[in-house]
Design a protein around this nucleic acid. Structure first.
Lengths: 188, 188
DNA sequence: GTCAGTCTGTACCAATTGGTTCAGATTGTA
DNA sequence: TACAATCTGAACCAATTGGTACAGACTGAC
């Protein structure tokens, strides 16, 4: 069996794929090996604390992407309308290209809920928080901004469920587009 | 060990609870026995085809509840506005009192996605369908009704994710209330 | 070339998994 | 009471699980 060398980031990326397609529990180490080619020795080398360690690394990587591509652009945007339009666009592309699964949302179910509660809570709280601030900067005042932000993130997450259930990407892209339009309307 | 006799419906109800709290995969037969008191012999007596059979029975029971309490009242309502208000109310109570988990949504993730694809698809398609018809009867025409219906169900599902992630029922009740108001506004 | 550090494949392990089996307990009917 | 049908507990099983250990392969620095 020829040996394959890889780096940790690539391992995390491959793990993310398995967890999206299979779920965390059903993504056993054997399945991970079959689908990614990464063996047990390598997995434990990179993630000495085992499977939860792997999931934590995956969540951290996804979080890093969102910080860079969603949260930071919202935070530093000059124009709220443009920032929101960009957010809906990158988020739509991200999820459509990744099995229509949000791993943070998946971790709110079953036994993972407790294990990753802090990471999950931070992700959603930060997303809603930074979007609320963006709406504030765009002239939406008081509790309205927070409600709109919560509703927008909920719509995106609910859209993912609907699109998987109905097996139709157009459901998600439709929901995201209408969400974007709703936000755009109040920013004008 | 004194023997306990139960009926199938009660077994299904207990299983639903385990699957909500633990997830389907992590809800092993041992965990089911510990948390429900139902032993292996009984489980296989009622569900001869094993674990998938159990999940199928649970989904059928939940589906039955939705048919009776949500879909049928929407279908037969004289007043669309009242029907929609009632729907949001019963749905909110239902989910808040059941671990804030929609089992149909949970089955859109991981390996269960394929196993229960038909049941899941039917549940969401029917919910959206009957809500669309209700909106039609309330005077909303063309594609708007279907979009509003999809968005409403997505909001409810997304609200469940947010409320679990932020561990705060008020998030869900807020989202459901605003969703209800949005629908009510277009029906007036 | 040598050596230390990094990474890999694979053998091994205890525990758990879903499933099978069936004797015995329980219930309902005549 | 007798009997058939229904339900249960628990022993048993093969397969799989996550984890451990480590020899050997590989890489980079000197």
């Amino acid at each position: 069996m020829p040996r394959t060398v890889l780096d940790r980031d690539d391992a995390v990326r491959a793990l993310a794929g398995v967890f999206r397609r299979r779920g965390f529990e059903s993504g056993s180490l054997s399945v991970i090996q079959q689908e990614t080619g990464i063996g047990r020795g390598s997995l434990y080398h990179f993630f000495p604390d085992g499977k939860a360690d792997m999931a934590r690394a995956v969540l951290a990587q996804v979080r890093g992407w969102f910080d860079e591509q969603v949260f930071e652009p919202l935070r530093t945007a000059g124009d709220a309308g443009e920032a929101v339009a960009r957010m809906t666009q990158v988020v739509e592309e991200y999820f459509v290209s990744r099995d229509r699964v949000c791993l943070f949302a998946a971790m709110t179910l079953g036994e993972e809920q407790e294990t990753f509660a802090r990471e999950v809570r931070a992700y959603f709280a930060d997303w809603v928080g930074v979007l609320t601030e963006t709406l504030h900067r765009g002239g939406i005042s008081g509790p309205d901004a927070a409600d709109l932000a919560v509703d927008a993130v909920a719509a995106i997450q609910g859209g993912l469920i609907m699109t998987r259930a109905l097996d139709d990407d157009a459901v998600f892209t439709g929901i995201v587009a209408r969400t974007g339009r709703r936000l755009h309307a109040v920013l004008s």
